[in-house]
Design a binder for these strands. Structure first.
Lengths: 142, 142
DNA sequence: TTTGAGATGCAATCCGATTGCAAAGTTAGG
DNA sequence: CCTAACTTTGCAATCGGATTGCATCTCAAA
């Protein structure tokens, strides 16, 4: 317990985030969940935490590249932990998968988009790729 | 003028959309603009039209597959004309490009995503790919 | 212990999306 | 031509997610 907690503190410190109790809790929750969560979903996992504080916690995490945000088209932005050394550079951006059945959104870290064949004089800076369908749990194991 | 107007009426009829004055105007505007527009942007091109009517017009167009919508991450959904025979099937979905400088969003009809190498048991149903960067006009012609 | 910066909590606002309802327009049948 | 039934339009209002203002609280450094 203590060891894990200490590790979380270090994780925050590494990203220059003051490790407050709230932030440690949020980090712990994100690590547990393992999927991208919306503010609402995160809030549902806390009994007494203030919604706005959670919001600002996520924003702080995002600013310091501990989490990245995904707009999966469901109407609410989701947040997911970045990998350890992530700097959120264009080339580190990855696809996300949204299950239309269970509504979970996960990172597809291995999914690479071929360098785009854009029309002449178009310059790519970022990309947002969300694939929707059925996840492994919902596809009925076919 | 009349010929074009007649053609537009036919376009609407082909999609089983009652060709009202308003709808013809909106269709004309969309054809003129040639880019994906948000409700706000569309409204700005009309002097006396009601915002909600425009909204419902777009929704009607969308339901009848005359336009498709794009969530380019700017916070407001954009709409663009479908190609003539489009049925909005998964394989007809295409990428969109959003210029970070001039804020225009356009369809990249030719941009094909390779059949995704998804993890086992994941099934793709739709996808949303938005590439952001600088368009040909804004990339300084380099 | 004091102090100041940052974190937190509550209230309020903003804005895009969407709906309810009544008025106006359109069409088919008499 | 005239009405009934349906559709479209316009205005008001609501909804929900995102965001900000401000006062309070916490904590670390002096």
């Amino acid at each position: 317990m203590d060891a894990l907690q200490t590790k979380r503190e270090q994780t925050l410190l590494d990203r220059h985030i003051q490790p407050t109790a709230m932030r440690l809790l949020v980090l712990e929750e994100l690590q547990k969940l393992q999927v991208a969560v919306s503010l609402n979903e995160l809030e549902a996992n806390f009994d007494r935490a203030d919604r706005i504080t959670l919001y600002r916690t996520l924003k702080t995490f995002q600013k310091n590249k501990l989490v990245h945000s995904i707009d999966d088209g469901t109407g609410s932005v989701k947040y997911a932990l970045c990998s350890d050394q992530c700097e959120c550079r264009p080339e580190e951006q990855h696809a996300h998968f949204h299950c239309n059945k269970c509504d979970l959104t996960i990172c597809l870290n291995d999914f690479h988009l071929q360098r785009a064949s854009l029309p002449k004089h178009f310059v790519m800076q970022e990309m947002n790729l969300v694939i929707k369908g059925l996840c492994d749990h919902c596809s009925d194991g076919t």
